[in-house]
Design a binder for these strands. Sequence first.
RNA 1: AAGGCAAAUCGGUCUACCGCUGUUCAUGUGAGUGAAGAGAGGAAAGUCCGGGCAGCGCAGAGUACCGUACUUCCUAACAGGAAGGGUUCGCAACGGGCAUUGCUCAGAGCGAAUACAGAAAGUGCCACAGAAAGCUAAACCGCCUGCCGGAGCUUGCGAAGGCGGGUAAGGGUGAAAAGGUGGGGUAAGAGCCCACCGGGUUGUCGGUGACGGCGAUCGCCGGGUAAACCUUACGGGCUGAAAAACCAAAUAAACCCGGGCAGAAUGCUUCGGUAUUCGAAAGGGCUACUCGUUCAAUCCGGGAGGGUAGGUUGAUGGACACUGAUGGUGACGUCAGUGCUAGAUAAAUGGUAGACACACACCCAUGAGCAAUCAGAGGUGUUUACAGAAUCCGGCUUAUAGAUUUGCCUUUUGC
RNA 2: UGGCCCAUGGUGUAACUGGCAACACGUCUGAUUUUGGUUCAGAAGAGUCUAGGUUCGAGCCCUAGUGGGCCAA
Length: 128
Amino acid sequence: MPLTFGKEYKLCSKRIIDAVFDQGEQVKAYPYIARYLITGLPEPVAFQVVFSAPKRTFRKAHERNRIKRLARETFRLNKSELEMYLKNQNKQLALFLVYTAPKEVSFAENQKAMSKLQKKIIDTIDAL
RNA sequence: AAGGCAAAUCGGUCUACCGCUGUUCAUGUGAGUGAAGAGAGGAAAGUCCGGGCAGCGCAGAGUACCGUACUUCCUAACAGGAAGGGUUCGCAACGGGCAUUGCUCAGAGCGAAUACAGAAAGUGCCACAGAAAGCUAAACCGCCUGCCGGAGCUUGCGAAGGCGGGUAAGGGUGAAAAGGUGGGGUAAGAGCCCACCGGGUUGUCGGUGACGGCGAUCGCCGGGUAAACCUUACGGGCUGAAAAACCAAAUAAACCCGGGCAGAAUGCUUCGGUAUUCGAAAGGGCUACUCGUUCAAUCCGGGAGGGUAGGUUGAUGGACACUGAUGGUGACGUCAGUGCUAGAUAAAUGGUAGACACACACCCAUGAGCAAUCAGAGGUGUUUACAGAAUCCGGCUUAUAGAUUUGCCUUUUGC
RNA sequence: UGGCCCAUGGUGUAACUGGCAACACGUCUGAUUUUGGUUCAGAAGAGUCUAGGUUCGAGCCCUAGUGGGCCAA
């Protein structure tokens, strides 16, 4: 499974984002909160993601950029398990990640949190 | 040498692996794959000014409103910049006056600051205090003086008090009291007179000009506030890249409410109309208002509702950058050569590991010194400051670890 | 991206044309009451978001910043 993480993985459709918040499930793994929904996507990929850093806690644009870059990088390095799972199940997932910590978290901790989060998502989907 | 201020430049580098967004080339029917090369700033920030660009049919006039404010120049333009002028403050040579080695006035020069048009067009305000807070000023305490008065006594001098006159030098009030200092003068005083300084008017010379020099003349002419109203001069049409144009997709030229293509009189008439005169309401657009202008008849305004939720252009070659020459005191201009230097769209330019440089902190062999202390090979630790393009430029303002260069000022040491 | 507004005791608000920053609630102390509440009397608590400037004098005027809120789409 390649480690590429291009534009097609980006969730842009406003309609799907609204649906995620209306009907989706919530999973927590500090410092992230994720809302997700199994639904059809406009691109032939396993999932599409939004990364978000709140403007209220991160006032400066470069701080928000940093948080989102770290999140994107760690997600890219840990996505293979989730992607394999979804491909096997033939499902598509819309995912919205919110960063909740009040400060920047190190790369190692980020990696831990991200793999934990993805495992949790797989578990909850299985439970359905 | 150290410190401060100002200006300018820079503000990490390299390697490996894994990625992100465009471009070009190759390959492939295609999805795609591979290679090459590019990819944040000096402030990208604040959004405080100015412009380019676009729309408002045409882009009009006046009023209102907003802004700017020493001069000349630079510039596409500006509230920006350059040079110059004035004013204020600090240091202060030479000098003047009185006195005699002190006080005071004034000030070449040097440095710093400066939102710096008009207060003699008008209006308002100047609390408290004070007699008085402003056209021609004004007597609270004082000072001087005329008359009355008479306590007293040294018997012709006269205190207190009263009525009047002169006086802005002194005191007092206040942020501010009607040119300043010194001298003469006087009953006491006063630009009343004089010297120096300041000021008004005016002539002349220099300067593009702000303004300055020199002279004449006037004893002087009149407080502050315009970051109060205002006046004068100059500038500004409004909106804003979510502007705007095009392609594609979708749908409803449907529904409801309001308004509209006027109207009147007279003449002629083949009764279809037509001519003249009067008259011109309501609405929309153009700038808030007025004027002016303009708009259509399947039209205009409003309501409720339905659909779409993509792409291209705008939009990155420009008031562009660098180098050289040249004109200018300078900002900047001109000419020649070379270069192409982000273009994302919920928003790319990153992550991990290692090495290096710089800087800082701590430890410390050692050296200088009587000492306080200073320097410091080496070692350990910390890994960058402020901060992320969003239509583009020119400025301003604010943030910024640290490094380098230049200029000025201060202090210390040595000669 | 563009535009608008606000900031005053612990809280909510005043302060006229620039002239001693006021009021209510709350807090504290005392009185009344067996105790608490109510009521009465008294007290403390700010220098007006920050830094400059104009002015004799600034909460108010001007400039720059900080923080908070709102609008268009």
